[in-house]
Design a protein around this nucleic acid. Sequence first.
RNA 1: GUGGGUGUAGCUCAGUUGGUUAGAGCACCAGAUUGUGAUUCUGGGGGUCGCGGGUUCAAGUCCCGUUACCCACCCCA
Length: 435
Amino acid sequence: MASDAYQSPRGTRDLFPEELIRVRYLEETARKLARAFHYHEIRTPLFEETRLFTRSLGETSDVVDKEMFTVPPRAEGGAPYSFRPEGTASAARAYVQGGCPTSAPFQKWFYLGPMFRYERPQKGRERQFTQFGVEVFGAQNPVLDAEVVDFALRFFENLGFGPELEVRVNTMGDPNDRVRWKAQLQDFFSDSLAGRCSDCQERFDRNPFRLLDCKVEKCQNLNEGVPSLRGQLAEESTAHHEEFLATLEALGHKPQDDPSIVRGLDYYTRTVFEIHYPPLGARSALCGGGRYDGLVEEVGGASTPAVGFAIGFTATEIAMAEVGLPKPETLEPFQQELQTQVYCVAVGEEDRKPIAKLASDLRAAGVMGVDLDYRNKSVKAQLKEAAKSGALAVALLGPDERAAGYVCLRNMKTREENKIPESDFLPELLNLLKE
RNA sequence: GUGGGUGUAGCUCAGUUGGUUAGAGCACCAGAUUGUGAUUCUGGGGGUCGCGGGUUCAAGUCCCGUUACCCACCCCA
């Protein structure tokens, strides 16, 4: 492995065909569910003007602060671009730009694709990763908050996760609730600030909410008796949360109401939730989401309520591997696509073009997985190749066959071989493949 | 950004207290008489031992630096 050889950029990886199968399985599961829930796919650019993200995610969020891949302006007076670190901001931008607020305010969308964050890679975290997310715009009904949670849970259920899936929910209130709460928090924290960890001291000004879930023990102890947001909630926020919980239960889910859940991005309002798979231990979060009623307005549209979630495939893949998913048979349909069905063998040099023509005709007739030798291998080596590839049938052409207008059809399982008249070959082959 | 671990062929790894041309398995390629896939056999390609410096008569093996990857923290999907 020469050190000057090119490598994929840090935090990225190549998905070779056999590995890609697993990802495609996740994608198809997501798409299948989206059809059931009647959410439509939207694709936005992989990069946006940087200010879209700083505006929507919050200047002080870590994502914006230090994790963006940013391309400087190329021309005088131009704008910097950034690769999208998440999907919600782009969706909201597209919603506004597409005229949805006035022409079709209610939308149920999903997106699926790569996101980029400039972070130190580690287990379950990459610089380029795939997210599946949904966004519902145009209704504040808490039934939607519950539906979105239901959707995410069904996704994991479909992948084979058991009933230990855990939904943790909380409400972050409305902006006014939070202004009141923030003031109370800072008031409460200011007394004990000197005794806290350096991170907490830093976060005190820009994001005091984060002191609540600090992992340091002494900080946790100092949080005894901290004022709760719940005490500051306006009536509408409380009612919304209760209705959300009631609907979740009606859908058969048992959420844990957990006031310690505080999501990192600024745009959340009211409902926030995470889905965990506790067997994974510390890193058990598979999905995060919530409501962001102020976001559309923030990016320049008419005030529009919205709710959604995002699932990271990297974490999902790891979680699946740890619990022995997916079951091998689940991937069979995908593996089938990589499988050689028919391998075409040429006996002599003068048979190469005719065998290429036969392969071409088979492909045109709709036969899948038709392959042949391109490296001038001997007949023996071609058969070996066919066997290794798992081909079910071999079509063999030599001078004798061509002279007589036959093609030799070999069943690789039974080793039976028959000379078939050229005109009957396709149906005979299809017949063999059907078995 | 901080801390820890690792770095020998495409892959998984051996390489004894520093000592002759650096090994194995798998994978790959070719051959074992004239047009056919098991197993087997034979042969072959492929590594400046991550990179740079130092110690030494001598370094894959010791020391320093550097880089890449992995893991943890921060934060998050």
